[in-house]
Design a protein around this nucleic acid. Structure first.
Length: 268
DNA sequence: ATCAGCACCTGTTGGC
DNA sequence: TGCCAACAGGTGCTGA
C-alpha cells in the first residue's frame, strides 16, 4: 500500500497533532512481532516527548527527545490512525498513548508492517537510498546510480537501497509520464530519457501528495480518510482499458514478480 | 552481484 | 451459488 506520497500525507497530518506530546503508555503485539529484530526495546519510548514527525523513503520517522527515533513501515496494508477518543480500532497491532489522552493506533490486516526504535541518522540506520524529492538528487547523481546497470528501469525504481520511496504504483505512473518502457535497461536510458524520468517522478509524486495519496485498496490517512490520486492514475490497474492519451489498450506484464502496467504505444 | 522464487499474512475477486 | 487459484500498494532471505 503506502508509498512516498501516502507516508508524506500521514506525516504532514500527524505533525501538528503529536509534536510536543509525551508518550505515557505503549502496547503492541508480539506474534508476529511489531518491532523488528534490530529495534531497541519499545519501552524506551515511554516518557519521551515528540520533537519532529517526518519521512524517510516509505518510513514514517518520529524523532523524540533523548536522541531517540521511531520508524514505522506500513508495508502492504498498515494504517496509522490518530485517535482522540478511546474507540477500539479493528486489526490493531500497536497503540501509543499520549499525555492528553489522544492515541496513535497502528492497525494492519496482513501484519507485514513493522516499527523500529533506534538512535542516529534515519537513512543510514534504515539502509535506504536517496529520496526522489531531495535536492541532492540531480541528473549527475542519477547517472552515477544507474551507470552500467542492466536491470529493467521499473525494477530499479523499486529498489529502496538506491532510491527510497517509489513503489509499484508510482513506478508505473512515472514511467508512463516519462514515455519510457518499463523493461528498458536502466543504464541504457538516453540522457533525455533519464532527465524526463527524474522530472516525471517528481511531478507525479508531488501531484499525488497534493491529492493526499492513492487509495487503491486499504490506504487511509491518519484521520481515516481515503486519498484522491487513484482517480488520476493513468496506467496502474488499467490493464485492457484504453490509454488516456492514444487509446491503445494498457498492457500488464510481470517484472521483478510485480504487476507492471504500461502503454505499448506511448512508452518507448 | 543479480535475480527468480518463495515466505510472511489476510482478504477480495474472477473463472469455472 | 460455491470453490479455488490468483493477486494485492512491500521487503527479506535463499539458492542458483
Amino acid at each position: 500500500m503506502p508509498e512516498l506520497p501516502e507516508v508524506e500525507t500521514i506525516a504532514r497530518d500527524l505533525a501538528p497533532q503529536i509534536t510536543g506530546r509525551t508518550i505515557v503508555r505503549m502496547r503492541h503485539d508480539r506474534t508476529p512481532p511489531v518491532f523488528d529484530e534490530h529495534s531497541l526495546p519499545a519501552a524506551l519510548l515511554v516518557g519521551r516527548s515528540i520533537e519532529h514527525v517526518g519521512r524517510a523513503g516509505k518510513f514514517l520517522v518520529i524523532t523524540l527527545d533523548d536522541d531517540l527515533r521511531l520508524a514505522v513501515h506500513l508495508r502492504m496494508t498498515g494504517n496509522l490512525l490518530f485517535s482522540k477518543d478511546g474507540r477500539p480500532v479493528d486489526r490493531t497491532r500497536a497503540v501509543i498513548e499520549f499525555d492528553n489522552a489522544t492515541r496513535l493506533v497502528f492497525a494492519d490486516v496482513r501484519k507485514f508492517g513493522r516499527m523500529r526504535v533506534f538512535r542516529g541518522e534515519a537513512r543510514t540506520t534504515l539502509g535506504i537510498g536517496v529520496d526522489p524529492l531531495a535536492s541532492e538528487l540531480d541528473d549527475a547523481m542519477l547517472r552515477d546510480l544507474t551507470r552500467g546497470r542492466t536491470t529493467p528501469v521499473k525494477v530499479w525504481l523499486l529498489d529502496q537501497k538506491r532510491l527510497a520511496g517509489v513503489g509499484n504504483i508510482y513506478a508505473c505512473e512515472s514511467l508512463y509520464a516519462a514515455g519510457i518502457r518499463p523493461k528498458k535497461p536502466v543504464g541504457k536510458l538516453s540522457r533525455a530519457q533519464r532527465y524526463r524520468l527524474l522530472a516525471s517522478l517528481r511531478r507525479v509524486l508531488r501531484k499525488a501528495i497534493q491529492h493526499r495519496g492513492s487509495s487503491v485498496d486499504d490506504y487511509v490517512d491518519a484521520g481515516g480518510k481515503e486519498g484522491e490520486f487513484q482517480k488520476h492514475l493513468k496506467v496502474y490497474g488499467r490493464a485492457g482499458l484504453p490509454c488516456r492519451r492514444c487509446g491503445a489498450p494498457i498492457r500488464r506484464i510481470v517484472l521483478g514478480q510485480r504487476g507492471t502496467f504500461y502503454c505499448p504505444v506511448c512508452q518507448r
